[in-house]
Amino acid sequence: MNQAETIISIKDRARKNFSKGFNCAECVFEAVLEHIETDLPKDVLKLATGFGGGIGLYGDTCGAIAGAVMAVSAIHGRSALPHNEDRKKAMNMAAEQLYGKPGLYRIFNQIPNKIHSKYGYTLCREITTLWQDQWLCRDHALHCREIITDAAEIAAALITGDKETISSEPFGRNVENL
């Protein structure tokens, strides 16, 4: 499967997952786990469950964003910290991995920025404000399914894209004004 086909397959699976009863985070994470080799056991999907509804329906960061971050982390995340006998050098190496150009935060920063760009928000309670009195209605489900599909596409593109390129992109909105 080429990159475009993989992205489409992940988007389609995430979209279908929602109609099977997966929550927003599970939809995205499971779709990536199904189509991308991560060497992670299938039980790792359990980690996504609590992120639905902006973390247990609390309404914070959209679960589809959390699922996308988890999926991209499964490929591009760190499995160990840089090691150096000199503590300061080790800290500098770790900071360079995250903040540098290329840097891992440049990859992950794209996910909420792209969702925010399209939907105006990243918090579940703001994205779904129209349906808070009728949470499980059809319009709400259709809206969330679109966000899930978009988050899956973003994750798939970041996973299948050239790591050097995507990790060198400029930061979008961020807490450090980088």
Rank of each mutant, 00 (worst) to 15 (best):
I159H: 08
Q134P: 00
H76Q: 09
F18M: 06
Y105L: 04
L47K: 09
R13P: 01
G100Y: 07
G52T: 06
G21R: 12
K16V: 09
N92L: 15
A94W: 11
M70S: 05
N84A: 13
T160V: 07
P102W: 00
L136E: 04
I8V: 10
N23V: 15
S19V: 12
A74G: 10
R125W: 06
I154D: 01
I65L: 15
G21N: 09
R13S: 09
N92G: 13
W135E: 12
D139W: 13
G54R: 05
R138K: 13
G21A: 05
A94Y: 12
E176H: 14
M93W: 06
Y119S: 08
I111E: 03
F108P: 02
E85S: 12
T165H: 15
N92I: 13
L98K: 14
C144H: 14
G63D: 04
S117P: 15
Q134V: 03
F29G: 04
W135P: 01
L130M: 11
C144L: 11
N109M: 02
L57Y: 15
Y58N: 14
K163E: 08
S73C: 13
L158T: 11
E96G: 09
D150K: 01
L40H: 11
L104R: 05
L57Q: 14
S79G: 09
C27H: 10
C137E: 09
V72R: 00
G100W: 04
R87Y: 02
V32W: 05
T129R: 01
S73A: 12
I7R: 04
K114G: 02
A151N: 10
L104K: 07
V44T: 15
H143R: 11
N92P: 00
Q110F: 03
Q3E: 05
N84W: 01
E169D: 13
A25R: 14
C27P: 01
K88G: 03
N174P: 00
H83W: 09
N113P: 07
Y105E: 05
Q3R: 08
L40K: 08
C24K: 01
I75Q: 11
I147V: 10
L33D: 00
H140D: 09
T129Y: 00
G172D: 06
I7Q: 03
V175N: 12
G103Q: 02
E34A: 11
A157W: 03
G56I: 15
R87A: 00
H143P: 07
A14E: 10
Q110G: 05
A14C: 11
A152V: 06
H83I: 08
L178A: 03
T149G: 01
A80L: 14
E153P: 06
D133N: 09
K16S: 02
L178C: 04
G161K: 11
F29M: 03
G56F: 15
A64I: 12
F22H: 12
T6I: 14
I65T: 08
A152S: 06
L130E: 09
Y105W: 06
W131E: 05
I111S: 08
Q97Y: 10
R173T: 15
F108A: 05
A74R: 01
T129A: 02
M93E: 06
A141F: 03
Y99A: 05
M93P: 03
I36S: 15
I107F: 00
G67I: 00
I75C: 13
G59K: 13
T165Q: 15
G53E: 01
K101M: 06
C137D: 13
D139C: 12
I148H: 00
